[in-house]
Computed example of a mutant assay.
Amino acid sequence: MTAGTGITVITGASSGIGAALAEELARKGHRLALLGRNAERLEAVAERCRAAGVPCTTHSVDIRNRTALQDVLAGIESAAPIGLFIANAGILDGRRDGETVESYEAAERVLDTNLISTISALHLVLPGMRARREGRLLLISSLAAFAPLPDAPAYSAAKAGLLSYGLALREALREEGISVCVACPGYVTSAMSARHLGHRPGEIAAEDAARRILSALDGDRALSGFPFSLYWGSRLSLLVPAFIRRLGMKGLRFRVGG
């Protein structure tokens, strides 16, 4: 993957997959703009990226604040064209200890962050890409898009929505020189996954996940999912009878910690 002349923007870059993607892209020579809510953690990631010899700016912003996000992205675009936009920002919430189902407040927060605000961010960078007739979009979804988690319905819905939106966007933009890749990782070690109190089969390091995701992006693949067994198990899960799916999901029940 070549760095090109534009800027690579990553949302949710202060930890987990976002941070790992930033460091991997820095090693490949990408000029970076990192977005996240935690300014201190974001700056620590940026320092590691700068150590690789690339320019890297940080922007502390909540993507749910569209006005603030618009200002940040406009400032980045004024410095250089945004060539790659990675929509990675997301939160995990769901059923808490003592609950049968997640609260409405948790569901609203997850859907706003993981889907609505992410789509809003995409439409803030798309005009520049469309005018130049070039650019790449990378959307970080989840295997929960294929196999809805009963303990996190809103998270599953948001990731399914992001998957469908990304694949549809890829076809809509294919004649305009803009590529779209949707990544659906399984369990990845991160601060967010630490709130997942339950079994996490096939969990991999964020660095490993980043390399797999960027390989799919480099190959201009529409969709990337891993690990292999969970990916195909998830994709096939909606085709089997409900009682079989229920048995398969039984070992994946969890609750969300504070």
Rank of each mutant, 00 (worst) to 15 (best):
A3F: 08
P148V: 08
A131T: 13
A33Q: 07
V54Y: 14
R235V: 12
T2Q: 14
P153F: 11
G83K: 03
G177N: 02
R255K: 14
L21C: 07
A131L: 13
S156H: 01
R211F: 02
A51H: 15
R212V: 10
C184Y: 05
A80M: 01
L137T: 05
V110I: 14
G90V: 10
E175I: 04
L34C: 09
S15W: 07
V9A: 08
D93A: 12
G90N: 12
L42E: 04
L239V: 09
S164V: 05
N65F: 05
A157T: 07
A20Y: 08
M249R: 04
V72K: 08
G128D: 07
E105Q: 12
I213P: 03
K28F: 00
L42F: 06
Y155L: 02
R253Y: 00
R174M: 08
P150W: 12
M1N: 01
A206K: 11
R174E: 13
I91D: 09
C56D: 14
I7F: 08
E207R: 14
S215M: 14
G258M: 13
G198Q: 01
A206E: 06
T113A: 02
S215P: 00
T118P: 02
I119Q: 04
G219F: 03
L217K: 06
V256G: 04
L34A: 10
T100V: 11
P150R: 11
S224N: 10
N65E: 15
G186D: 09
E207L: 10
A216Y: 14
I10L: 06
M1G: 05
L137I: 15
P148R: 05
V9N: 06
N114I: 01
D112T: 13
V101H: 15
V125L: 05
A51F: 14
L143R: 11
D71W: 04
E171Y: 14
